[in-house]
Design a protein around this nucleic acid. Structure first.
Length: 391
DNA sequence: TCTGGGGTCCTAGGACCC
DNA sequence: TCTGGGGTCCTAGGACCC
């Protein structure tokens, strides 16, 4: 008999707002939104009190205040959210090592081998209570045999819901949902699917013409159809947490930028912030991309590959200036972004460096110089020396 | 209501190799 | 002479998610 895995998807409810309420209990029972308090700003999150008035995340502040005049707009405090997120994952990891963070406020757990005969619902309730009582973090939990169903399930009851979605429940509980509720189907795809008569997840499941479906969903057509039947991967990969793919910063300019020098200055500030974050994560990057959004909302991006991994501001800026020069058009700029990818832990680069030991002295020195430049000076300098000595 | 900032993954087309 | 196919890697751009 095939054994189903038991996957939990745990989702923090109105996470940023919950964090603010946790440190400032006065805010509880009041409508709050997280965002910059200006008419043109948008809310990243609204708590459930505010949602009753029709305030949603991604809504702009002006509109939100129209719907809920007494709304309190709280500026975001990302350091706090980071800290609470770490607490959240620490609690999850106290139940199983098989935890895969999906974002700052949600994670997948493979609970199959740790239940020890306990009922999944009871364990879920325990996790939920603990997070809510000890950390002021309300969560919704979805329990299912795979990731997709668990994710859909955690969405069905919010806040503080626990929902079990078995494969045999799919027709009754999943199929009636509108197609836009399906994870992975976004606002560009929805109109196309409706055009061919797919309005619900059930419609997708029973759609016969896979060729035609492929026109809109590409290679993922079969995968989406499988999911609509409740078939999806149940692999929870804890190592994914460490494998950051990119580190970048971007900024939208409310008044637009018109001046080339101002743009470069902004890019320099963004690059500085990227360097700081790479330092903190002890990562170096081999690729860098610059993104520009013009006032007509067209996006352009360009990409540069370094000869070797680096975390050096000057090297980054050289690339940024080079890329931006070729992206620049004589148009006002709405957004600028700098993003690094192809990342590697500096520690790993050091290990590669000691392998390099065998090569020519001159070449080696150049290599070391470059690396040194690109790597945190003090702490890493010591490490480097040690690495060479040990060789 | 014309709107943030952090990401991930996918795809099409070109370069290049065998 | 004017013609194959497959594979991989890279880049730009887009869709999607929280």
């Amino acid at each position: 008999m095939k054994k189903y895995r038991i996957i939990f998807h745990i989702d923090l409810n109105a996470f940023f707002a919950s964090c603010e309420e946790a440190v400032n209990p006065n805010l509880k029972n009041k409508p709050i939104g997280i965002g910059k308090n200006s008419d043109r700003g948008i809310l990243t999150t609204a708590n459930y009190v505010a949602r009753k008035y029709g305030v949603t995340s991604a809504m702009n502040v002006y509109e939100a205040k129209k719907r809920c005049p007494q709304l309190l707009v709280v500026p975001p405090n990302f350091a706090l959210y980071q800290e609470k997120s770490e607490q959240f994952f620490t609690v999850l990891r106290s139940y199983t090592d098989m935890v895969e963070p999906a974002s700052i406020d949600e994670g997948y757990l493979d609970m199959t081998d740790v239940l020890e005969g306990k009922h999944p619902l009871d364990v879920a309730k325990e996790i939920q209570d603990r997070l809510n009582n000890d950390y002021d973090l309300p969560v919704s939990i979805g329990i299912a045999p795979n990731r997709f169903l668990a994710k859909m399930a955690s969405d069905m009851k919010k806040p503080l819901g626990i929902t079990v979605l078995r494969k045999r429940d799919v027709q009754e509980k999943l199929w009636p949902l509108p197609i836009e509720a399906m994870y992975g189907i976004g606002k560009k795809t929805v109109p196309n699917l409706k055009l061919i008569g797919i309005n619900t997840i059930g419609d997708l499941a029973t759609f016969k013409d896979i060729q035609r479906l492929g026109k809109f969903l590409g290679n993922q057509a079969v995968g989406f159809k499988d999911k609509a039947w409740g078939n999806a991967s149940s692999v929870v990969d804890p190592s994914k947490a460490e494998e950051v793919q990119s580190v970048g910063n971007s900024k939208t300019f409310e008044g637009f930028l018109h001046d080339y020098d101002a743009m470069l200055k902004a890019l320099s500030a963004l690059t500085e912030s990227v360097v700081r974050r790479l330092d903190k994560k002890e990562l170096s990057a081999k690729s860098l991309a610059v993104q520009v959004r013009f006032n007509d909302f067209t996006n352009r991006s360009k990409h540069y590959s370094f000869e070797q991994h680096t975390g050096d501001f000057d090297e980054f800026m050289e690339a940024v200036e080079y890329l931006f020069e070729s992206l620049y058009e004589d148009k006002a700029v709405h957004l600028l972004g700098v993003s690094t990818s192809n990342l590697e832990k500096r520690e790993v680069l050091f290990r590669q460096l000691s392998i390099f030991e065998a090569k020519e002295p001159l070449e080696k020195q150049e290599h070391i110089d470059k690396l040194l430049k690109s790597i945190n000076q003090n702490y890493d300098k010591a490490l480097l020396k040690k690495g060479i000595k040990n060789k």
